[in-house]
């Protein structure tokens, strides 16, 4: 898959797609069952990143993890 679509999925999950991007991503998802799975894989990583960063923050006692 091209980085273009990966980036569009990432922008969607980060809450910052334009309306045009959202509509195009929606059509891309429907165009091929593999694209649905690609969206889900990206969303899995997104969700795990949230949990991992939260866990790291908790381990550091709420201090910066960077």
């Amino acid at each position: 898959m091209s980085d273009h679509w990966q980036n569009r999925i990432a922008d969607f999950l980060d809450g910052s797609p334009s309306e045009e991007e959202r509509v195009r991503l929606n059509e891309w998802i429907k165009s091929d069952p593999r694209n649905v799975r690609r969206f889900v894989r990206e969303a899995m990583v997104h969700s795990h990143l949230h949990d991992l960063m939260k866990a790291e923050e908790a381990m550091n006692g709420g201090r910066s993890v960077a």
């Binding site: 999950l13 980060d14 809450g15 969206f39 889900v40 969303a43 899995m44 997104h46 969700s47 795990h48 949230h50 949990d51």
Partner: peptide, 10 residues
């Protein structure tokens, strides 16, 4: 959780 976070972006 991953399914919910796909659409609830906050």
């Amino acid at each position: 959780a991953a399914y919910i976070r796909s659409f609830a972006h906050d």
